[in-house]
Design a protein around this nucleic acid. Structure first.
Lengths: 137, 137
DNA sequence: GTCGAATTGAGAAAATATACCAGTTTTCAA
DNA sequence: TTGAAAACTGGTATATTTTCTCAATTCGAC
């Protein structure tokens, strides 16, 4: 939140973490990402992954998602978009729907609060899990 | 999720927890609710509060909210509605906006998943915190 | 009232995230 | 380049939140 003029440095760790989260399509949690990053930097610690994800999220470079589990997950795509959460397999998928741009302004006016952004999350059973259940029924 | 024919009982604890969460307007977390319930049942344990909130949420009687903190908060109002989260004071407020009823069906069709519900959350600074910041600026 | 099953209380344990700190790396001015 | 200050890291301890365990209690059908 506070910038405080502190300079930031590009470390090897940060570079790899950024690459991995940006190319990930599955909205991984910190631990999952840690495993992936370790393939390139075997000695990197989980704390470093948490620290850098936190920094990136604060800068708006990535998005923190709170889903159907206790674990925080991260989205390397910082462009506004919505998500679908499968209650069965816990997968999170991007929704190809245009964000409701005007909504913040409209709702902000009606409740008299300064709205900075909004989030829309859909919950249900994805087609893969649905098919699997059908077969077993 | 699974019903399994197990019978449920109405205990004194469950009754008081239901009363408190239903009349709460501030979307309390489990710990806060525990404090309130303890005024009526001083010996009730936090685990019992968690257990019952979890059960109620599974039945759809209340809603679990994941907000701006790590803590899960609960909403006694199970009627579909949206929320505003103040990033400053962490207060959660109901949004008096008609839910987008058709959205689930529309999006579900476009992504080919079975969508059961959706959630919309607005984030920003509430008018109280905004005023306070203005004075200090 | 009696009995079996559901529930509770208390605390241990698990799960997730952050804090701490000594040692390392990055950056930048000289 | 090089040297030094500041930022960052790894490893681990600690904090925080939630779930689990289990003996004891309570509920409710009979």
């Amino acid at each position: 939140m506070k910038k405080s003029g502190k300079k930031t440095r590009m470390t090897r760790q940060k570079k790899v973490i950024m690459e991995e989260i940006k190319k990930a399509c599955d909205h991984p949690d910190a631990d999952t990402l840690h495993s992936r990053v370790k393939k390139k930097l075997p000695r990197i610690s989980l704390a470093t992954v948490y620290r850098n994800l936190e920094d990136m999220a604060a800068q708006g470079a990535i998005i923190k998602l709170s889903g159907t589990t206790q674990r925080t997950r991260y989205d390397g795509n910082s462009h506004p978009h919505y998500h679908f959460h499968c209650l069965e397999c816990r997968e999170i998928e991007d929704i190809p729907v245009e964000p409701l741009e005007k909504l913040d302004q409209h709702v902000g006016h009606s409740v008299n609060h300064d709205i900075l952004w909004h989030r829309v999350d859909f919950f249900g059973i994805c087609s893969r899990c649905g098919d699997r259940t059908d077969r077993n029924a």
